[in-house]
Every structure is written in C-alpha cells, then in structure tokens.
C-alpha cells in the first residue's frame, strides 16, 4: 500500500485547529471532576452511612460502565425527558459541548474520589493523632496535615487519570464535536485515508501525553523535597 507523507503533514495543522476544543474539554472537566471528587471524598469519609452509601453507589455506576455509554445516555437519553428540557440545566444539556463536559466530569469525579480516598487512607494515623494531641481540631487536621500529605501520595495516580481523561475527550467526537478527533474523522471521510490521518492524530495525542507526564513529574519532584535526603 502507498503511504502519503504529504497527507500527514497536511492534516496535522488542520487537526491542531481542534486542539483548543480538546484542551477546553480536558481542563474544564478536570477542574469540575476534581471538585466533584473532593466533594464525594468528604461524603465518603464523613462516617455517616446515609452520605457514604449513595456516594458508593454513584462511584460504582460511573466506574462500572463505559464512558461512551454515559456520554450517549446524557446526549441522546436525557433530552427525551420532559422535566430535563424544562429544567435549568437544559441550556447546558442541549449543547453537545455541555453534554460532553457533564459526562467527562461525572466520570472523572468518580475515579478521582477513589484516588483521593487512597491518599487519605495512606496518611499515617500517628500524624493525625499527634495533631489531635496538640489540640488541633478535626477540620484543621484535615486541612493542615491529612490533605497536604494525601495530595503528595495520590499525585502519581492523579496524573494517570489526567492522561486517561485527555484520551477520553476523543469520545466527544461521537456526539458531533469537532475536537482533534472530530476533525480527523472529517478528513478521513473526505480523503478515504484512515491510516495517515489517524496516525497524525495519534502523534498529537502522544505529544500531549508526554507534556502532561513531564509536568506532573516536575510537580512531584518539587512537592517531595521533604523526603529527599541531602546526604
């Protein structure tokens, strides 16, 4: 088969037009998902079953089903319901962009809350006891002792999740959005050259993944100054 290098070089700039949308999907749903993850974490570790139990059901559903299905249900399913169309959420849910953000955020939030919980459980109990013994309140312990240590502990898992969320943004192209993947699919439809076009888009995704990983490696290094011994 022939391999059209020129087509690759041609399509990369075209797809880069969609990189803005990819980043919007990534950063917006990462921010919302992180906030949701923290909220779910607090419910989960509240020690009250009526807060923890619904949270666990939520997490189970969103981690236990494919994100593509979640996107389709939100985009195709919800508008069928009249009360959704009448609700204040309709301006968001009637747009494919809004649906993609909602789906990606809800999904990431479920994963992140479990990652955060792992971090919190990883904090040595002796440290919170030492803080308690000093008269520091439960809330202050969570803010000044548990959180900073838990954040360091869950950073590697968090960065994995950011990469995985970045890749999930490509699914937005299935509900008509023209992110990088959406543009790639349009070019394929015009040129009938899936090989070259999808390889180009793959290269771009790889570069973004690399950038995310480098960024987190740098943050991790900065945040673990306290465990590096200067011998």
């Amino acid at each position: 088969m022939s391999f059209d290098i020129e087509l690759i070089l041609d399509s990369i700039p075209k797809m880069l037009v969609g990189i803005g949308l990819t980043f919007e999907l990534l950063f917006l749903s990462l921010a919302l998902g992180t906030a949701l993850g923290i909220f779910l974490l607090i419910l989960r570790i509240s020690g009250r079953w009526y807060l923890a139990a619904p949270t666990m059901v939520y997490i189970y559903i969103f981690r236990g089903t494919p994100i593509l299905v979640q996107i389709f249900i939100i985009y195709y399913g919800l508008p069928q319901l009249e009360f959704v169309r009448d609700s204040i959420f309709w301006p968001i849910l009637k747009e494919p962009f809004g649906c993609a953000i909602v789906a990606l955020s809800l999904n990431t939030g479920a994963y992140l809350s479990e990652i955060f919980r792992g971090g919190v459980l990883g904090v040595d109990r002796g440290l919170t006891e030492a803080a308690a013994a000093l008269g520091i309140s439960v809330r202050q312990r969570f803010i000044y002792i548990t959180s900073p240590i838990a954040i360091r502990l869950c950073l590697p898992a968090y960065s994995n999740d950011v990469v995985s969320l970045m890749k999930s943004t490509a699914l937005a192209s299935t509900i008509t959005l023209l992110d990088m993947m959406g543009i790639a699919r349009t070019i394929v439809a015009e040129t009938y050259a899936p090989y070259e076009v999808f390889i180009s888009v793959m290269v771009i995704y790889l570069v973004i993944t690399w950038a995310i990983q480098r960024t987190f490696a740098w943050i991790e290094k900065r945040m673990s100054r306290h465990v590096r011994r200067e011998a």
Binding site: E129, A130, A133
Partner: peptide, 15 residues
C-alpha cells in the same frame, strides 16, 4: 496535656 510518641510522629511535610 502534651504527648510524645514512640514513633515521633513529626509532620513530614513541615520543617
């Protein structure tokens, strides 16, 4: 009441 623990329990992220 101050307390001193067997495993020190210093906050590792603070100087």
């Amino acid at each position: 009441v101050g307390m001193v623990f067997q495993s020190f329990n210093l906050f590792p992220h603070l100087t």
